[in-house]
Design a protein around this nucleic acid. Structure first.
Lengths: 284, 284
DNA sequence: ACGAGCGATACCCTGGGGGTATGGATGCTC
DNA sequence: GAGCATCCATACCCCCAGGGTATCGCTCGT
């Protein structure tokens, strides 16, 4: 099957409108109509039910939309990986969130540099949940990820399980406590991360903004314990005993077998294994 | 990137010879040379180092070969799944080995038919290790697989863990035993499955051939315990206490979300969960 | 009833993908 | 080391697939 035709179909299936899809694709509408018809003929399957007033996907069309998107992504990722592999200065691109390394980054990088297969590491910071897209898209080689994102298309290994702490302004009513529970946080204003659609508190884009808002007393935040290392002196961290533990993982594109990547994974898991456990978590 | 160009490159990279690759592709050699050069220009990367006498892959070329093959497979699989989804008589294609259902097939099918989302099931028997290729290639929707095949690109769920039995001719020296260990089988002639390159005993293609050879006293076989149900009366099954347990899994293409498939997985796991455990395994 | 919106059809035109012929380099053979 | 076979690159030609414009026909909202 032709990738161009498939991309055309995906555009139409997403817009459910030939004219708009054609505009998005930068071509005229008639050739698009023809291309879709040709694709349907080649596959021997009707993909779209078109009345002159509305376009709807058939079952086959729905399948091809899902599968086709992934297939096209795979194609683009293959191209990008080849391009990256062809650069004369080989780099290992590591993607992570700003405060998402569990404080192990220096150790991991140091351990990696001692590996014989090590190549220079380029660290790429990204926003919420972009890790997986960058890895799947072939933009990055390996990533440190939190939580339970959808890891289809990626291999991963658990690095460490962290408890969570609540970050409070120094004058907060809970600031003096040794530890708190989620129940204690009832009614508090929690921030809203850009990209996460949950609404409520103020919108924050990065850790710096978050810190300012906390110091101003406008919000508080529950973060993995390792975030402590990045916080200034005007806030207090208090363990949240019953917050769900956060698993930090290292993830990489499925079946990637480059020696440089393998060495990095090895270094990261070694560092994590020898790391001293943090404060004790309640329950599991 | 164009899929045609990528397919051309994969052919050349596999043959490491433009002329043969062109022949395989059914085109002449000059357009192939041009297409590869064009692909290299588009990607901005040298993929092949060609002297007029030999062609070798660059690092980028090696990456594109690996990734490109998968990407092309994904493309073809997407097309096939769409075609299958477009047929007017929807079927769920289940792939399994001949004696590989752990004896649960009737129960699973019966349970599935009671599901509201059930559609007719087409059972496809396949050879050694073909399951995963058929699933990845979009030829099948769901499969029952044994052992630890490479499941990248597939989701799976464990169904049951079985002990193994050795299948013996009735006159075999071990035929009277209550149970044996692997040490007891030292020196015995084991069959060689077609497709598995391990050599040694006679070559067998299916369970029928195997049975004949066992009855003839030419070989013995170690099989999952559930194979018992399929064996005739001229052989004896003896548990092998220390043989590694075999995990039977149900697997399906990653992220497949059709209701019919989900219902089947549910039915299979339900049946497996309520199944009576078989003979006790030694150790873990 | 009429017009706006949308997909299909008809027709043209151009670029690129494919073909043949041939050149130039590199090993192999005797 | 001359001759030759092999193999990729170049030169040149041709054709059609894919893209554009103009227009039609259908459907629905007002």
């Amino acid at each position: 099957m032709d990738a161009r035709e498939l991309a055309y179909f995906v555009a139409v299936a997403e817009e459910l409108n030939f004219s708009r899809a054609a505009e998005r694709l930068g071509i005229a509408q008639p050739p698009l109509s023809r291309a879709i018809k040709q694709l349907e003929r080649r596959l021997g399957v009707v993909l779209l039910e078109r009345t002159s007033r509305r376009v709807v996907l058939t079952a086959a069309g729905q399948v091809l939309l899902d599968e086709g998107r992934r297939a096209l992504d795979g194609l683009a990722a293959a191209a990008r990986r080849a391009q990256r592999a062809g650069r004369q200065d080989p780099r290992l691109v590591l993607v992570t969130k700003a405060v998402g390394d569990g404080g192990m980054m220096p150790d991991i990088l140091a351990a990696y540099e001692r590996e014989p297969d090590a190549i220079p590491v380029e660290v790429l910071f990204c926003g919420f949940g972009e890790h997986v897209a960058l890895l799947r898209g072939g933009f990055a080689d390996v990533g440190l990820v939190h939580g339970q994102p959808d890891l289809t298309g990626l291999d991963s290994e658990d690095l460490l399980v962290e408890g969570q702490v609540v970050v409070l302004p120094v004058r907060h009513r809970l600031a003096g406590h040794e530890a708190v529970t989620l129940a204690d946080l009832e009614g508090e204003v929690l921030p809203r991360w850009v990209g996460l659609s949950q609404d409520g508190g103020p919108e924050v884009r990065d850790a710096g903004q978050l810190m300012q808002l906390i110091v101003m007393g406008r919000t508080i935040a529950v973060l993995p314990e390792s975030a402590r290392a990045y916080l200034g002196g005007d806030v207090v961290c208090v363990p949240v005993l019953d917050a769900p533990p956060i698993t930090m993982m290292i993830a990489w594109p499925e079946q990637s077998r480059s020696p440089a990547l393998a060495a990095f994974v090895r270094a990261a898991t070694d560092v994590a294994a020898h790391r001293k456990p943090s404060f004790q978590q309640v329950g599991r």
